Simulated assay, not measured.
Amino acid sequence: MPSAATHLADVAQALSIRYNNRVYEMKARGEDVIVLSLGEAFFDIPLFSFAEMPMPESYHYNSSRGNPELRRQLAAYYGRRYGVAVNADTEILVTAGSKAAIHMSLMAILDPGDEVLVLEPAWVSYTEQVKLCHGVPVMVPIDETVFGLDRYVTARTKAIIVNNPNNPSGQVMTRAELEHLHALAERHDLFLLSDEAYSEFLLDDAFISCGALDPEKRHTLVCNSISKNHGMSGWRIGYVIASPALIAEVLKINQHLITCPPTILEHYLVRHFDAILEVTRPQIAEVVRKRGEMARYLESCGIGRLPGDATFYLFASIEPSTLGSEEFCTRLLEEHHVCAVPGIGYGTSCDRYIRISVGTESDERVKHGIRQVRRLIEATAPAPIHFRLEPAAAV
């Protein structure tokens, strides 16, 4: 009997998706679960009219680069919002979600055995996508800074993955950090693959696109998503911005794997792009505000976290629990009906953390979930501990 490809044995399931699938199973049995694991915010978005969609054109294939008008809108958006000039004809490609955009970008730049620096905490799919492209992920531990990356570069290093703002910590890179990365890329002839899927999730203008510091796109690929910033994760629309030469390579891959993004959804976005952003931006501001409130609540409970002010995630410490993050999250789900994502999914140096998302539940349910985290930490600590807790939240 033939067997599966041997290299897949080293590729893990997406840990966040595995836990969310368990939530779906529990809910199907009628169980109430506080979901702090989903990587999306549940915005209230009206359904704009489909009546003006071009028919029968919307039933058929469209350009493998993406709808030309949508590309113009996305190029204008990056130029207006982040100061990144993008040629809509040659420097952008729209595909079925930013996850596919990142993977196809890696396929376009990696040869077998090439190394990719991945900074922890790292979104769960970076390492596995590098492996699927027959590359070698080189993990940079959580206590290392951007300014110490030189020591991880070897003759085989081909790229650095930049996640800005970071999922799961919410940290935003400074201009000095980005300038150092670009200098490193120039010095060692490396690509910077910048995942900017949470670029709208800030309350100020601290975010700087990686592309803004490489206007000629000599070594930068930027991936972004309609899923997060437009609150439309189920539509699976993402895009990549890069040099014309690299986009031409990604185009080949897109043609053979995807063909094109969903035609009718592209037409919908062409007609309602700005209107959707007008609806989601106030809600983005509200969820980031809520994140700040929950960060303060974590602190009031005596629970630490990694620094960061963006996105809708908190990377919370489970110290001094004796459990690893996966066992901790399994018990949290089974015993307390609260689902969070184990930190080990974001790198081996992150096993003392869990990711908490505040985008899908009410304030009170998120706080209740945090209190259950605290209870499990107390129950699994090597010695009795007493966290501080504001009186109104006592349980």
Score class of each variant (00 low, 15 high):
Ser233Asp: 13
Asn224Gly: 13
Glu196Ala: 13
Leu202Arg: 07
Ala245Pro: 01
Gly234Cys: 08
Asp195Leu: 07
Gly211Pro: 06
Tyr239Glu: 01
Tyr198Thr: 07
Glu216Met: 02
Gly211His: 07
Ser209Arg: 03
Lys217Met: 11
Ser243Val: 12
Lys252Cys: 05
Ala212Arg: 09
Ile237Lys: 06
Cys223Pro: 01
Lys217Trp: 06
Arg236Tyr: 12
Ser243Arg: 11
Asp205Glu: 12
Pro244Ser: 13
Asn229Pro: 09
Val222Ala: 09
Leu246Cys: 02
Phe207Gln: 00
Ser209Val: 05
Ala206Gly: 12
Asp195Arg: 05
Leu192Tyr: 08
Asp204Gln: 10
Ser227Thr: 01
Ala197Asn: 05
Leu246Asn: 00
Met232Trp: 03
Arg218Asp: 03
Ile241Met: 11
Trp235Met: 11
Asp195Glu: 15
Gly238Asn: 07
Pro244Arg: 15
Ser199Met: 10
Ala206Glu: 14
Val222Leu: 11
Ala197Lys: 00
Tyr239Val: 07
Ser227Leu: 02
Lys228Thr: 14
Ala212Pro: 02
Ile208Ala: 03
Ala248Gly: 10
Ala245Val: 05
Leu246Tyr: 02
Val240Lys: 05
Asn229Trp: 00
His230Val: 04
Trp235Lys: 01
Pro215Val: 14
Ile237Ser: 08
Asp205Val: 10
Ile241His: 07
Ile226Arg: 01
Glu249Thr: 11
Ser233Ile: 01
Ala248Gln: 11
Cys210Pro: 02
Tyr198Ala: 08
Cys223Gln: 03
Phe191Met: 10
Gly238Ala: 13
Ala206Met: 13
Leu213Asn: 10
Glu200Thr: 03
Phe207Val: 02
Lys217Ser: 06
Phe191Tyr: 14
Glu216Leu: 09
Ile247Met: 08
Cys210Val: 12
Leu246Ala: 03
Glu196Ile: 08
Val222Asn: 01
Phe207Ala: 09
Leu192Phe: 09
Ala248Glu: 15
Pro215Thr: 15
Lys228His: 12
Phe201Asp: 02
Leu213Gln: 15
Ala206His: 10
Leu221Pro: 08
Gly231Lys: 05
Leu221Tyr: 00
Ser199Asn: 15
Tyr198Pro: 01
Phe191Gln: 10
Trp235Phe: 14
Asn224Cys: 13
Phe201Tyr: 13
Cys210Lys: 06
Val222Pro: 00
Leu202Tyr: 09
Leu213Met: 14
His230Phe: 15
Phe191Ile: 13
Ala197Gly: 03
Leu192Pro: 02
Glu200Arg: 04
